[in-house]
Simulated assay, not measured.
Amino acid sequence: MKIPYFKLREALEEAKDSLSYGSGTEKIGSVARLVGKTVANAGMLATETAIEVGKELSKPETMAKILSDGLKNNRGNMSSDKIEHIERRIDQLKEKSRSKD
């Protein structure tokens, strides 16, 4: 789903015009709109990014890779039971990934 962003160029032009020719309340209002639209766009971008990251992390092959990397980097600090548990989980995720294809 594509989220419609605010057009900041238009808000910036409005703020410039208002700052040059407008009254005090017009200046404050246009700057507030520009700031509000900028913050809203940042929030929408963060939301889109979080959705994409969530989609990627929900893939079994991605989780298997994350667990494999973590196991490789921390094997020396783990008990043998924990290592076996993680290896089983990696195998389950790889199997799930293969069955999806």
Rank of each mutant, 00 (worst) to 15 (best):
residue 1 M to T: 13
residue 1 M to N: 08
residue 2 K to G: 11
residue 5 Y to N: 08
residue 5 Y to G: 05
residue 6 F to I: 01
residue 6 F to K: 04
residue 7 K to N: 13
residue 9 R to C: 06
residue 13 E to Y: 14
residue 16 K to R: 14
residue 16 K to L: 12
residue 16 K to F: 13
residue 17 D to I: 11
residue 18 S to I: 03
residue 19 L to N: 11
residue 21 Y to H: 11
residue 22 G to E: 00
residue 22 G to D: 02
residue 22 G to P: 02
residue 24 G to C: 04
residue 24 G to R: 02
residue 24 G to V: 06
residue 27 K to R: 13
residue 27 K to N: 07
residue 32 A to T: 08
residue 33 R to C: 02
residue 33 R to Y: 09
residue 34 L to T: 03
residue 35 V to M: 10
residue 35 V to N: 06
residue 35 V to R: 09
residue 36 G to H: 09
residue 36 G to P: 00
residue 38 T to L: 02
residue 38 T to Q: 02
residue 38 T to I: 01
residue 39 V to H: 05
residue 40 A to I: 06
residue 41 N to F: 03
residue 42 A to F: 12
residue 45 L to I: 14
residue 45 L to F: 14
residue 46 A to N: 12
residue 47 T to G: 08
residue 49 T to V: 12
residue 50 A to K: 09
residue 50 A to W: 09
residue 51 I to T: 09
residue 52 E to H: 10
residue 52 E to W: 12
residue 52 E to T: 11
residue 53 V to F: 08
residue 53 V to H: 06
residue 53 V to Y: 09
residue 54 G to L: 07
residue 54 G to P: 03
residue 55 K to Y: 13
residue 56 E to W: 11
residue 56 E to A: 15
residue 57 L to M: 09
residue 57 L to H: 04
residue 58 S to D: 08
residue 58 S to T: 08
residue 60 P to R: 01
residue 61 E to L: 04
residue 61 E to W: 03
residue 62 T to Y: 04
residue 62 T to Q: 03
residue 63 M to C: 02
residue 64 A to L: 02
residue 65 K to Q: 07
residue 67 L to A: 01
residue 68 S to M: 00
residue 68 S to A: 05
residue 68 S to G: 00
residue 69 D to R: 08
residue 71 L to W: 03
residue 71 L to A: 03
residue 71 L to E: 03
residue 72 K to T: 05
residue 73 N to K: 15
residue 74 N to Y: 10
residue 75 R to P: 00
residue 75 R to D: 00
residue 76 G to M: 01
residue 76 G to S: 07
residue 77 N to Y: 15
residue 78 M to I: 02
residue 80 S to V: 13
residue 81 D to K: 13
residue 84 E to M: 12
residue 86 I to V: 15
residue 88 R to A: 14
residue 89 R to P: 00
residue 91 D to G: 14
residue 92 Q to S: 15
residue 92 Q to D: 15
residue 92 Q to A: 15
residue 94 K to Y: 01
residue 94 K to M: 04
residue 98 R to I: 05
residue 98 R to N: 07
residue 98 R to T: 05
residue 98 R to L: 07
residue 100 K to Y: 12
residue 100 K to R: 12
residue 101 D to Y: 09
residue 101 D to I: 12
